[in-house]
């Protein structure tokens, strides 16, 4: 990491229970401004749940989340989005009968708080940035999988988010498309957006992350640079062990 070590997003002792199941237990994490933080863990280890807690889709059962020093736990998702945190969903949810551009427009108007005219300008700029300008007038239900993934990103970007959480945004892409997606993430970081990335494709997430956090059964079992994490024995046991041991 560079010299700027401003914490932009922070979780303290975040837990979330579903009945008796502890989907998250006592998670502490910090996200530094400008970084790309990778979040990995086996299926069901609580990655999506953490994202949902951060953006307000579900409340933390215990603990708090701070954004730019302000406690945001318990706020509603639209408030949190307007403050500057956006999330792309594991399961893409385009507004299928609206055009690609209109999808992005909603983000720019509501999340970004722009009047309609400025929102259209922002929409065009972002569509060009994520390379969706050619399909901007196509109903979003009719575009390809990689395009849908980019549309999720475009909607998040349109909200002028300072932090974007990506939940498996590369799932279902082929190696070429993954390379393009990674380039896009780097370009987004260049725009000054801080990223937190959940990804199962290990090579991709290792390659792009400055730091990584590893979850297992709702607990944080490791944290560090990609290399440190990859060499951490408990990670190998808990995570990679499932597949490679």
């Amino acid at each position: 990491m560079g010299p700027e070590q401003n914490i932009i997003l922070e979780g303290r002792g975040v837990s979330r229970y579903f009945g008796a199941l502890a989907a998250l237990s006592g998670i502490d994490f910090s996200l530094y401004e400008g970084e790309i933080l990778g979040l990995i863990g086996p299926n069901g280890s609580g990655k999506t749940t953490l994202f949902n807690v951060i953006v307000g889709v579900c409340r933390p059962s215990e603990g708090k989340v701070f954004f730019e020093g302000r406690d945001i736990s318990g706020m509603s998702p639209h408030r949190i989005c307007q403050m500057g945190i956006a999330k792309t969903s594991q399961i893409v949810q385009p507004f299928t009968r609206m055009t690609v551009a209109e999808n992005v427009l909603v983000g720019a108007m509501y999340g970004g708080g722009l009047p309609q005219k400025e929102a259209w300008e922002k929409t065009r700029e972002i569509l060009a940035f994520v390379n969706l300008d050619k399909v901007m007038n196509t109903p979003s239900g009719k575009i390809s999988i990689p395009e849908r993934r980019r549309l999720e990103l475009a909607r998040a970007l349109a909200t002028s988010a300072k932090v974007i959480l990506l939940d498996e945004n590369m799932a279902g892409l082929n190696p070429n498309e993954i390379e393009e997606a990674l380039d896009l993430l780097r370009a987004i970081r260049e725009r000054g957006v801080t990223l937190m990335v959940v990804e199962h494709i290990m090579r991709a997430v290792m390659g792009i992350s400055d730091r990584m956090i590893v979850f297992n059964y709702g607990e944080k079992i490791a944290e560090g640079t990609p290399r440190e994490v990859a060499e951490n024995p408990s990670v190998i046991r808990a995570y990679l062990g499932d597949k490679y041991a």
Binding site: H78, S89, F95, R97, V106, Y110, Q116
Partner: peptide, 22 residues
């Protein structure tokens, strides 16, 4: 603006909320 939000709610309400629509 409201019209777009209404349609977005129709299509995918949770997604609309996530991109800032109250």
């Amino acid at each position: 603006r409201m019209g777009y939000a209404l349609k977005a709610i129709h299509e995918a309400e949770d997604a609309a909320e996530l991109i800032g629509v109250n």
